[in-house]
Design a protein around this nucleic acid. Sequence first.
DNA 1: AATTCGGGGGC
DNA 2: GCCCCAGAATT
Length: 416
Amino acid sequence: MRRSVGNGDGWRRYDAAMSAPSTPGFVESPEAVRSFRRRLLGFFDSEARDLPWRRTSDPYAIWVSEIMAQQTRVETAVPYYRRWLERYPDVHALAAAPIDAVLKSWEGLGYYSRARNLHRAARIVAETLGGRVPDTVDGLRALPGIGEYASGAIASIAFDRPAPAVAGHVRRVFARLHDDPSPTGSGVRDWAQRVVDPGRPGDFNQALMELGATVCTPRRPDCGSCPVADFCRARMAGTAEVRPAPKARTKVKSEVRLVAVFIDDSADERHLLMRRRPDEGLLAGMWEFPSRVAAARVGKRATMEALDDLARAHGVPVGKALAERAPPRPLEPVLHKFSHLHVEYRPWVVSTAGLDGSEPAQGPDLAAGSTRAERPTLVRWISATAVEELALPVAQQRIVTSALRPFTAGADPRAG
DNA sequence: AATTCGGGGGC
DNA sequence: GCCCCAGAATT
C-alpha cells in the first residue's frame, strides 16, 4: 500500500541546509534527524489511528480527504468522506455531478467554498488532464482549492514526493520542539522540508500531524508518551503548554436577523418559500429562508412591517388581510456562531393558506429590495419533502425542523 | 498581513 | 465562554 521512492535527494538537501548557521534547529546533526524520523515513523506505525483514507493509494480519494479535513477534526470528516466516495467514486463522477448535489453532500461540513473548488478542480482534471490527478506539488497547487498545505500533503501521501505539509498541528509541534512562541510560516516550512523522510514522505507528514492531534495537543500535551520528547526544547524548559502563543483573534461581529418562514398549507403537502444564496460569499449557493437584519430590540410593529417587506420582496401576497386571518407566529430563536460572525435568527411562521396567486418573484424582481450581495439566485416554493433535497446551512435546517414540528407525526406538543 | 470564509468538540 | 481544528483565497 505504501510505495517507496527513496532517491536520497532528501539527505543531500538536509546536509546542505544543516551546515548553514542561520537555521538553528532542534537537531544539530544528521544522526539526530535520522533518529527523529525513525522514532516518529515508529510511532506512526504502531499508534496511528485507522483512518479510511489511510487504506487507499487512490490520489483522488486522498485529495478528497485532505480538503475535507481542512479546519475540521478528522473524526468529523470521516463519515462525509465515506459517503462522498460512494456517491463520487472517481474524479469523473464528481466532475459530472451538478453543483447543488455536491453542496448537498458537503452540507454540515462548513466552508462550502471547499466543495465548490473541489468540484471545479475535478472538472479541470477530468476535462483537460485526462482524469489524472497531477503528481507534482506545482501541478496540484495550480488547482482551485489546493494551497500550500494540500499540495504538499497530496504530493507526499499519494505520490511519494518529499514535500513538506504544514498544517496547524505541525506548526504547534514545531513551536514546541524549538520552544518558539510564534514561529513564522517560512520557518516551519523550511524545517519541515529538511526533516521530511525522503523514503516515506507521506507517512512522515501524517506522523507529524498524528502527533499533534493525539499527543502534542493544544492543551495538556501528553509529553510522557511522546516519541520525540527527547528532542523537545519546550519540554526541557517546561513551556510546552504555552507554546505556541495564542493567535490574536479578530473581533467577532453580532447580528440579529428577522426570518420569514412563509408556509403554504392549503394543499395536501405544505410548501415553504426558500431562496438560494448567491454563488459567492458566505454560504454560497446554499438555500435559506428570506431574512433581513433587524435591531436587537425590535418591536412588534416593526417586526410585522419587516415581514411584510420580505413577503413583497419575494412575491408573497400578504397585507392586512393576512395578519387578520393568520397572525405570524414566532419560533424559538436560533443562535449560530460563524467564525467571524454571530447571528441570532428570529424566525416567524407566516401562513399563506387561502391566498391567491402565491407565486414567488422571478427575474429582475427577484427578492426586490435586497442588496446586491444578498440577492438570491432563485426563489421557490419548496414542498416539505423536497426541502430535504436542498443544501441547507445548519441554522436553516434547525429553522425547518422547528417550523415543521407541529406537523410532524409523533410530535411532542411540549417540545419547542 | 489581515479578512473572509462553518461548524463543532473539548474544557 | 474560549480555543482550535490535516487552510485557501482575496484584498
